[in-house]
């Protein structure tokens, strides 16, 4: 068999290392041509593929603790690629790629019904409420590998799919069909100054994500590492973004498990 095995690209974020600095957000904005507006303080109206949440342990001073939780698209696998958002899109503008496990979004096909936003429990999908406008000259910094989105469509993190394509093209030119771990990395992973983000193929035991998470691929990729958890595990969305922490309260704040399975 010459056909390469399917990939399951995923990410594990070490919440004990993440400092909440926002470098991942900015690197993502720069890589993916995310627009900005005069007032972006209302995060529910603002487009940012990566958002850093601030979690609190809810205890009073001086026992208060905080943790930062970066949230890219979770690239849910659901059952056999039946991710919450992909199945609901009426215009086939989003797709679960069985070869990579990446949930894509076709901006030119989306007509802005926002059903996928209602379907996503992670608020990953965001709507272009406004026309994207760059101040004169700043559009020069736009990345030609990623198309600029128009007003009225939904967008979200693509695990920097353009980087995957670029890496794959380069590999093909060199006569290879497989990418090495470091050849394809997302912008946030690469930028993270704390080294808190690890990205790779969950199907590949040689990759660090696999080694950290130890995914139970028969059960939707449930982590076998007890320090690793996923957001809303019990919904059965089977996200491919995992979180690593030693702190119990962080795990509890990140996932509402009434009964542990």
């Amino acid at each position: 068999m010459d056909q390469p095995k399917n990939k399951r690209y995923g990410m594990v974020i070490d919440l004990d290392k993440c400092t909440g600095c926002g470098a991942c957000m900015v690197a993502c904005m720069a890589e993916n041509n995310i627009p900005f507006r005069d007032d972006d303080t209302d995060k529910l109206l603002s487009v940012s593929w990566m958002h850093v949440y601030r979690l609190s342990n809810g205890k009073p001073f001086p026992h208060a603790e905080e943790c930062f939780l970066p949230r890219p698209c979770q690239h849910c696998e659901g059952e056999h690629g039946h991710s919450p958002c992909v199945s609901v899109c009426p215009a086939t503008a989003t797709d679960y790629d069985m070869h990579t496990g990446i949930v894509s979004q076709i901006y030119t096909r989306c007509f802005g019904c926002r059903y996928c936003m209602a379907a996503c429990p992670y608020h990953v999908r965001q709507f272009n409420w406004w026309d994207p406008v760059w101040p004169e000259g700043m559009e020069r910094a736009l990345n030609p590998d990623v198309s600029v989105r128009m007003r009225g469509v939904v967008e979200k993190c693509s695990f920097c799919y353009s980087r995957y394509q670029t890496a794959l093209n380069r590999a093909y030119l060199e006569g290879r069909r497989e990418l090495s771990e470091e050849e394809y990395q997302t912008a946030c992973t690469q930028a993270c100054p704390a080294g808190a983000i690890v990205f790779g193929d969950l199907n590949n035991p040689a990759h660090r994500v696999h080694q950290i998470v130890k995914p139970d691929l028969a059960h939707g990729g449930r982590p076998r590492n007890p320090k690793v958890f996923r957001l809303l595990e019990r919904l059965g969305t089977h996200p491919k973004v995992y979180y690593l922490t030693r702190r119990d309260w962080v795990r509890r704040a990140g996932d509402n498990e009434i009964q542990k399975t």
Partner: peptide, 14 residues
């Protein structure tokens, strides 16, 4: 969001 493309629901129906 894109009324002029609303017919995609028929054309690209999922």
């Amino acid at each position: 969001g894109q009324p002029l493309r609303a017919w995609f629901i028929f054309w690209h129906a999922n």
